[in-house]
């Protein structure tokens, strides 16, 4: 099975698979470390032997992260691979977290755009804050429509 180019593609497809088969789909993350490939220096250089030893020591082993969504019943496999540490927290927290909610049959989390407009917990009691609250809702409605258009 080929790998997806972007994490977003992987997430979208995984989400669809999970919606279709929530009970059997699993997500496996493999973090693997492999020794760095050492480039063999050409023989003939007098200092090569010493340098080679030095470079192998300085080169740290390479790690990679492969994230795989698999449904054993239909045999669908969706994969994404990365070597960047910067992607880890996003992949785990938002992607795996979101898919985890799907697995648990939890309702979809609120749209992220709505978050800054969301009234604070205590705002419900205050009458003055209601106009801003409704304005925020209208905005999020617009955001939702835009998203639907994007999907086409």
């Amino acid at each position: 099975m080929p790998y997806f180019e972007t994490a977003q593609e992987w997430l979208d497809q995984s989400n669809l698979l999970l919606q279709a088969r929530p009970a059997t789909t699993r997500i496996t993350t493999r973090y693997s470390i492999k020794p760095a490939r050492t480039r063999k220096s050409k023989t003939g250089d007098e200092s090569a032997t010493d340098d080679a030893a030095a470079t192998t020591e300085t080169k740290p082993p390479r790690g990679s992260l492969v994230i795989k969504t698999y449904d054993p019943e239909s045999g669908v496999v969706l994969k994404y691979r990365t070597t960047k540490a910067a992607e880890v927290s996003r992949l785990f927290q938002s992607s795996l977290g979101r898919l985890g909610r799907g697995m648990a049959a939890m309702p979809e989390p609120p749209v992220e755009e709505a978050m800054p407009d969301a009234p604070p917990a205590g705002a419900a009691a205050e009458g003055a804050s209601t106009p801003t609250g409704t304005a925020g809702q209208q905005q999020t409605g617009g955001g939702g429509k835009r998203k639907k258009k994007g999907k086409k």
């Binding site: 929530p22 009970a23 493999r30 973090y31 470390i33 492999k34 082993p61 049959a105």
Partner: peptide, 18 residues
């Protein structure tokens, strides 16, 4: 345990509990 070594893997899986 993995940190010191130069090879190996860790597998993490999540699925619905049924």
């Amino acid at each position: 345990h993995r940190k010191g070594s130069d090879h190996g893997a860790i597998y993490l899986t999540q699925k619905r509990l049924t």
